[in-house]
Design a protein around this nucleic acid. Structure first.
Lengths: 408, 408
DNA sequence: AGCTTTTTTCTCGACAGTCGAGAAATTAGA
DNA sequence: TCTAATTTCTCGACTGTCGAGAAAAAAGCT
């Protein structure tokens, strides 16, 4: 059933619109907000007055005015309206970043992730968050959102890691672990989902439109994939299908997930290693492979070693076939390749194209755009901020009583 | 960018809500509408008055009142507010149905689809529509929407068939063909997409919720797949991925689409025929296989013939592997199997389950529900009505001037 | 300095919509 | 005939958007 609407919801929607314009462009004057949102000047007056009363935005001290006329007053988010902590979990490190409500990075540090089970892991993260607020002497209560990212499968609605390379199908419940002590909301997303979201937002910013859908493919020890699309109304929608563990070949090589024949079992770093050294495909995969090891194989391949070349080519083919299936099931879209594996793009490319070329979608729609985007970490962080702030803004506006109460 | 909102949009949204409640439950009284939509009684008064003035709904003559109190006045759509024609294209027939605005079927007839190219085909459909309005003596101008369905790939936004079993990648542009002479809107959707939509709507009606996502798989000469999900706000979202021509096996059997190794090239009727008679897999597929032919193979399989059994088992496996990939890329969801191929379910089942069992998603989420739903044609028609009326209602409400003009 | 021009922000009244409360309508039963 | 029950309708309060024009404030010109 559809939802009913009301005048109050209209104000909420339009307030969100104003805040998102502020997010996109930074400080804006009254007229600029009006232009960006399409709302009438009078409406902007009313909304900004509300938001200012509620201590969400503030007039920033006006910069040197240029031109004649009444000087503009620029609005921007109140920095200490609240804070956001992003937690980026990788195979060896956990990186914490503290960001204020205006989006500026206040503090960042990393801790190596220890051994132990999920309980110890969650405790470590809890301690890390503690450390983050202590270092910056911030009130715990003013942390509005903790945004966590990891490889693996995140639950679509709750902050639970359903499957991960390290803990397997043992669930990791971030929401439960940070329930007491923190009244902040916790969200968890797949890392490559964030990359896809960041890439889409970049496209919107660059050319104000562009293709409304794209895929991000992250190559490394494991294989990640995110899809981002702008649906009707301009709202971005992101998802992270289980691409790395989609079936590539029935009864194929053993994968870290325990299944056989996954894409990752052919295209992940450990799989390339396994193939290059002609180890049987049902060998238990290596826990961790240093990049230097893969670099060596790549060098041999570039020098003409057939076995090394074949390992990369087969990895590429696994990706290519997988992508062809992705396009079949999600429609034609450009693919952006990122992650440490992009340095072997020259060795993978042929296999990828071979895998793609055969299928019906590609014959119909042509070869999809394949673009290498090297700087994955900053994309991940960007994705965190995009998603987190859209949620924070929504929440702040949604809790009307905060806007009323602060106003009296 | 998000869209701005206004009080007028609120009215539109709530009017749509009222109309959709009327669609779901048939005639409703003032209070019932209020209950169903959650809108205040006063709002219902205002909206129904508007819609009545605009000659979109009408008070139906009250039925025998039951109980005390002021008698209810029931609202329903004005039957002759407009008409809808559905065109269901199958491999040998084209079926036309004329439906009035209240959703009752006024007329239905079928014509055999002739030979010839796309131009002749479109001309035949144009003539068929002509015949539909003549038979019922209806004004062409009062046909609000023509809803066409076919197997194959429909363009996501325009009424163009991008690929079809019969015409291949030669595009069939319904919108262009019916541009002059008809001022009705034309929409085109994949047949199995409509089935998925109908199944979702049935679930909503039955248990007022249920799983928010499902897949419909249609087995026949070709393989169709539709996905339907209820997204935030309760709006249904449907899509028809190119499942039948997703890659099943690299360098595999020749498919009707010209590519090699598609799912259909193993699970379509012609593929089962090919496998049962041990014809080489690169044989040009048969144009059309009578069901009787496949029935014979099924009988042999049930009597113990190994080759026939294998043909079905391999078809099942192709479907199972395909479904496992579907679940990997679209998340876990129940699958409803329909189409003429369901009569061989006993022979396919083992292969399907074998194909599904191996993968990571299934290991994590368990075997998806596999339900056979036999009556495909009525699902297709239901899907047509659901989708078409939601569009028609939206359009009628959207064109405000019609509501104002009729009111003076 | 004082006036004009220009640009931006703010304010006011008109208009559209929803909601709650209670009035009006209408029937069944005492 | 009266009363209770039930539904529909109406009124005023409230929230929200919008256009027009007033007010503010700086730069340029005389």
């Amino acid at each position: 059933m559809l939802a009913k609407s009301s005048t109050e919801l209209v104000r909420q929607q339009n307030s969100a619109l104003v805040l998102s314009a502020l997010r996109r462009h930074g400080r804006l004057a009254h007229t600029e907000i009006s232009d960006a949102t399409g709302l009438a000047s009078a409406t902007i007056s009313s909304i900004t007055a509300d938001l200012e009363r509620a201590r969400i935005i503030e007039k920033s001290e006006q910069q040197a005015t240029v031109g004649r006329g009444r000087p503009r007053v620029l609005f921007s988010q109140r920095r200490n309206c609240g804070y956001l902590i992003t937690v980026i979990i990788s195979s060896d490190l956990i990186q914490y970043s503290l960001v204020d409500y205006a989006g500026t990075l206040l503090d960042r540090f990393s801790e190596s992730r220890g051994e132990g089970g999920t309980a110890a892991f969650l405790a470590a993260i809890s301690a890390g968050l503690e450390r983050a607020v202590e270092r910056s002497r911030i009130d715990r209560g003013s942390v509005l959102l903790v945004s966590v990212s990891s490889k693996g499968l995140a639950h679509p609605s709750e902050a639970v890691l359903v499957w991960s390379p390290v803990f397997g199908s043992q669930p990791v419940d971030f929401a439960a672990a940070l329930k007491d002590g923190w009244h902040a909301k916790v969200i968890l997303n797949n890392e490559t989902l964030l990359v896809a979201g960041a890439l889409l937002e970049r496209q919107v910013k660059m050319q104000g439109g562009g293709e409304p859908v794209l895929a991000a493919l992250s190559l490394g020890h494991s294989i990640g994939l995110g899809i981002a699309r702008r649906v009707a109304g301009g709202v971005p929608e992101v998802s992270a299908p289980n691409f790395g563990h989609m079936l590539h070949m029935p009864n194929g090589g053993l994968c870290r997930c325990g299944a056989r024949g996954c894409v990752e079992a052919y295209a992940g770093f450990y799989a390339i290693l396994r193939a290059a050294f002609e180890v049987p495909v049902d060998t238990i995969p290596a826990k961790f492979v240093p990049v230097a090891e893969i670099d060596k194989i790549a060098t041999r391949a570039r020098q003409g070693n057939r076995m090394a070349q074949l390992a990369f080519r087969n990895a590429g083919a696994a990706l290519g076939y997988g992508l062809s299936r992705l396009l079949s099931l999600h429609g034609h879209m450009p693919v952006f390749i990122t992650g440490p594996g992009t340095r072997y793009q020259d060795l993978l490319q042929a296999g990828i194209e071979e895998g793609l070329a055969q299928t019906h979608v590609v014959r119909l729609g042509g070869m999809p755009g394949l673009t290498v985007v090297p700087d994955e970490p900053s994309l991940v962080f960007e994705g965190h901020l995009n998603l987190a702030f859209s949620i924070v803004d929504q929440d702040i506006i949604g809790s009307r009583q905060s806007m009323q109460a602060a106003g009296e």
